[in-house]
């Protein structure tokens, strides 16, 4: 799994590329928590993530909860069908704000 962080229109875009599984989720968790620490709205771009497991979902949840504490917005962008299925199984598809594109995401956090 690789990741890329960039700022776009006042928001922090965290883009993952590759599977987020037991192997990679500790890294994903660290990346996300560090991003949340920057105190900006966060767009988690999952367009390059074909697979995410329960540990990856847990990392998302943890960073989402941390962001909420600091009244930060954290939205998911371009979620693949595979990742959506996992979120749905975890009953989290209604908890997260899921946007179809980066533009929608920026609008959502703006």
């Amino acid at each position: 799994m690789k990741h890329e962080i960039r700022e776009e229109q006042g928001a922090l875009v965290v883009a993952f590329n590759g599977d987020i599984d037991l192997q990679s989720s500790p890294e994903a968790r660290q990346v996300l928590l560090e991003a949340v620490g920057k105190n900006m709205p966060i767009l988690v771009d999952l367009s390059g993530v074909g697979y995410i497991d329960s540990s990856g979902v847990a990392s998302l949840v943890e960073s989402f909860q941390t962001a909420r504490k600091g009244a930060q917005n954290l939205v998911l962008v371009s979620v693949s069908d595979g990742a959506k299925r996992v979120l749905q199984l975890a009953r989290l598809d209604k908890v997260f704000t899921i946007c179809d594109s980066l533009d929608d995401g920026i609008a959502a956090v703006g």
Binding site: D53, S54, S55, V57, A58, V61, E62, V86, L89, A90, R91, L92
Partner: peptide, 18 residues
Amino acid sequence: DLDDIRPGGLGTHFIREV
């Protein structure tokens, strides 16, 4: 329990679900 989202246990829930 799904209300308590933390690592562990969620995977077992996935398995039973699918």
